[in-house]
Design a protein around this nucleic acid. Sequence first.
DNA 1: CTCCATGGTTCCTTTTTGGAACCTATGTTG
DNA 2: CAACATAGGTTCCAAAAAGGAACCATGGAG
Lengths: 174, 174
Amino acid sequence: MKWHQLGDMNCPVGRSLSILGDRWTLLIIRNAFLRTHRFEDFQKQLGMTRHLLADRLNRLVEKEVLKKVLYQDGPKRYEYRLTDAGQALYPVILMLGKWGNNWLNDGADHPPLEFIHNPCGHKTDPQLRCSECGEELHARDMQPLLVEGAGQEGMLQNTGDSHHPGQQRTASRG
Amino acid sequence: MKWHQLGDMNCPVGRSLSILGDRWTLLIIRNAFLRTHRFEDFQKQLGMTRHLLADRLNRLVEKEVLKKVLYQDGPKRYEYRLTDAGQALYPVILMLGKWGNNWLNDGADHPPLEFIHNPCGHKTDPQLRCSECGEELHARDMQPLLVEGAGQEGMLQNTGDSHHPGQQRTASRG
DNA sequence: CTCCATGGTTCCTTTTTGGAACCTATGTTG
DNA sequence: CAACATAGGTTCCAAAAAGGAACCATGGAG
């Protein structure tokens, strides 16, 4: 299977990764959150080839994660800014950062990265929480629920070949 | 710059992506969360070449995201399971899924994926929240803070070439 | 007309993928 | 013992993507 066919799959993680899952794309988006918007700046900060950068920026514009905004009219120049969809990737970037912080400090010479949450004014540790009870979410407590009419190749639900029975019921196809 | 040099960078997002940022790795991890553990099952479910799968599994074991566990002694057979570091990637996977759900439902024929949070029993919408005030976190409210002694190429802090002044102060190097 | 800045594009080499066949160890069937 | 099955790889080769460096285009400044 070619990797790009993943975009059609039923699993939302697969669809996300068909756009975001390559070597540079998420780094470009990270830098966009850091207020980098221009071709030259992306290129200098990331050190990637101009070639690839142009390709990735175009693809992100096409997928509506970034948009081109005119910022100068002499020779018309555009910069790249996050769309609403792009802004919505913040949790992904932040959780990747948290993971790197917690689990990839081999030599310990990497400074822990911390954030102030401006509205409350405190150093914050971003946490994934349940919208209903407010508790922190863990993989073992989550039960995926696939709505009716779907799911032949649904992923994010086990396909039933588990060697560890019990513990699992998916909604449909029962 | 070669992509693998990113592993040494100061930014935790860059370090995370040096392990996770390729076409297949996060999909392998997703399936591990869905209780897929064996080579053949990964291969069938993902449709990737055995070649690449072997390479990625080995790399994840080396990086201590997965571990090999003996499950049969006839011909010795091992399966791949998430380590604690691997388990800690759940928020990343879940937020990628949430994003795909919300922003990549082009034809709308993809079913929304929903989860029950077992401890509270409700359908949950996973949210990124502040550990201190409990409010949902947004990019615009977050101020990265780099601890002293660090930060030459720190990333996740703006390097100062912003064309949009104000709105930004990083803690050190002032 | 020349030079500069920004934002690309082209050309060519090196690495990574994709696809399919083959290998290894052991266990089962006949 | 031969033949086949199972699980987990490895090998080989062609195709695609990434890396590196030079070149191009537009418009303004000198």
